[in-house]
């Protein structure tokens, strides 16, 4: 069952209640918050436009953070992007790959909203949803959230002619569906972040080789190292076997030392 959040930016009033409810409900340490209210303004006094970005994980369906995570600490579940910190190797690929700039590093590991996984599993609504005084947040099955988002957009079209649903298709579809009163670029939200394959291409062809060379390997868990080491060792053994076999056939006991 795919779940999603609804975030209605025509209602959000930037009060920070969600930020603090999340911090307290999830017992986040000082210095960590999963939601940022970011003010934006355009124009010159007094001809101004402005509002807030309620900046938080967009729970992309084809999440690039999940695609690049070497340990599987990041994974999709119920339509949302989870993060198991204890499996995080601290490589930082997720930080580099997220089109919305969401994952942060804290004490050597990634941290981000996981859609209140344990809270929902325990039978409560996500903390931000429960507290929002503007009733800008909801959590439900994704198809119901999408339907409500479209209803809300229709209801505000008179006042906001550019009102639109964001997240049905953007970035391959999101687990955070927004009601936007205007075009996303006007609200400092990327209009349509590049699709995931491009991101992973960049990762595979640019980021990974660079970071491999930059001892990123050292940060990867022992299991991965072990696999690689064993693979190399097996290759080494095979080489030695071949050489010895060749030597045995050739009768040459001074086989060349094989470089792994």
């Amino acid at each position: 069952m795919e779940y999603a959040f609804l975030l209605d930016m025509s209602r959000c009033i930037g009060c920070e209640a969600c930020v603090v409810a999340c911090k307290t409900g999830n017992e986040l340490p000082i210095g960590t918050q999963y939601i940022d209210l970011i003010e934006h303004t355009s124009g010159t006094y007094p001809d101004l436009q402005g509002g807030f970005q309620n900046h938080r994980c967009y729970h992309c369906i084809d999440a690039s953070c999940v695609a690049v995570c070497p340990t599987g600490a990041l994974f999709k579940e119920d339509g949302l992007t989870r993060l198991n910190s204890s499996a995080c190797s601290g490589c930082g690929y997720c930080v580099q790959s997220c089109p919305y700039g969401i994952p942060k590093m804290e004490n050597g590991r990634a941290t981000k909203c996981d859609g209140c996984a344990s809270t929902v599993a325990g039978g409560e609504l996500p903390w931000c949803v429960q507290t929002c005084p503007a009733q800008a947040l909801k959590y439900d099955q994704r198809d119901l959230i999408l339907a409500e988002a479209h209803e809300r957009v229709a209801a505000i079209k008179g006042r906001y002619p550019n009102a639109q649903v964001y997240g049905e298709t953007q970035a391959g579809g999101l687990g955070l569906i927004l009601v936007l009163p205007d075009d996303p670029e006007k609200l400092d939200i990327p209009a349509d972040p590049p699709p995931v394959p491009v991101v992973t291409d960049v990762w595979k062809n640019v980021v990974q080789p660079v970071s491999m060379g930059a001892t990123a390997l050292a940060a990867i868990g022992a299991g991965v190292l072990g696999i690689i080491a064993r693979r190399n060792h097996m290759a080494e053994l095979r080489d030695i076997e071949e050489k010895e076999l060749a030597g045995a056939i050739a009768g040459d006991s001074d086989a060349e030392e094989v470089q792994p």
Binding site: N26, E27, P29, E106, R109, T111, S118, A121, E124
Partner: peptide, 18 residues
Amino acid sequence: GSAQPALASSYPDPAWFT
């Protein structure tokens, strides 16, 4: 009050109210 956990994301630790 509540102890500060070392890690921010507690998944799959169960929620405090359970």
